[in-house]
Design a protein around this nucleic acid. Structure first.
Length: 277
DNA sequence: CTTTAACCCTGGAGGC
DNA sequence: TGCCTCCAGGGTTAAA
């Protein structure tokens, strides 16, 4: 579920409710996540004020005066506000209790994480998980010149470079396929082989795809909060090719194909993206 | 340094 | 109904 747009949408949602509130308790029901949740987590944050809800890549950052809670939703995580009368469900692993409401971290696969970074150990952005991340896709630093420089000398496929998040964060498995399709670039091409015009097209495709998904993700999250049923896979609403193997390419009608790169599925149109098989 | 592969975990879908 | 296999939107870590 959590692609960058959903993480950002989640951040915006909790940012309207959480900041300036005193966290009364942080209850860990299941510490076995991607990394163990520190056993003293509650002591760190109990009766402390949440100053802000920030984001770096797909990491959510709850800022306190003395440190940060680092939250990652992994592959299957979600963070939602739930009134006290709402019963905790299976896989609701962590609770944030405030005076007026509470939040629940739900994560069946437990690839997510909740960590503590104390500011005595340095600035938050120097945390090992954050220090080597690429630039934010909506920041001025992400521009064609920067991207071209990042791709230079890289022999790995452009798909895997995008997914690695060292050049730019937020391009998940869906958006890697979608962006490369939009830019008509072969996902298997070595990153260094992209021309400058191709890099311009890819840069534009990434920003447009993420922006469109952010708009869409926001609306589906509102739907999810209002309705009882599932929001469904929000990317189904606008994905051009992701998950659509066998269906006609929206541009040229040739069948969309699927391949596996780095153990992750890639969807593409061999004709539009000039893929040699 | 770069690139690739294994791995963490649960659950849904589909074949038999 | 059950059992089996495959698949899943992430990313760290070890190995080559």
């Amino acid at each position: 579920m959590p692609e960058l747009p959903e993480v950002e949408t989640t951040r915006r949602g909790i940012a309207t409710l959480m900041p300036q509130q005193v966290l009364r308790q942080c209850i860990v029901h299941q510490p076995k996540m991607r990394w163990p949740i520190p056993s003293d987590m509650n002591e760190r944050v109990q009766n402390r004020t949440v100053l802000a809800c920030e984001r770096r890549g797909k990491y959510l950052l709850l800022r306190f005066e003395h440190g940060y809670q680092i939250i990652h939703l992994g592959m299957s995580g979600s963070l939602r506000s739930a009134p006290f009368e709402v019963e905790r469900l299976k896989h609701d692993h962590v609770e944030w209790i405030f005076d007026q409401t509470r939040f629940l971290l739900h994560d069946p696969r437990r690839f997510g994480a909740v960590l503590w970074h104390d500011l005595r150990d340095g600035p938050i952005l120097e945390h090992p998980l954050l220090a080597k991340l690429g630039v934010e896709p909506f920041s001025p630093e992400f521009n064609p010149d920067y991207l071209f420089q990042q791709l230079a000398n890289r022999t790995a496929s452009i798909k895997s470079i995008l997914l690695a998040g060292r050049a730019v964060v937020g391009v998940g498995n869906i958006y890697a396929s979608e962006s490369l399709f939009k830019a008509a670039i072969d996902p298997t091409a070595p990153a260094k082989s992209l021309s400058y015009p191709q890099t311009i097209a890819l840069h534009q495709a990434i920003v447009e795809t993420l922006q469109q998904a952010l708009d869409s993700g926001g609306s589906t999250l509102r739907d999810y909060q209002n309705a009882t049923g599932e929001a469904g896979a929000y990317f189904d609403l606008y994905a051009q090719i992701y998950g659509k193997a066998g269906q006609p390419c929206p541009r040229c009608e040739n069948p969309i194909q699927r391949l596996v790169q780095n153990q992750r599925a890639t969807y593409f149109c061999a004709a539009c993206q000039n893929v040699a098989l």
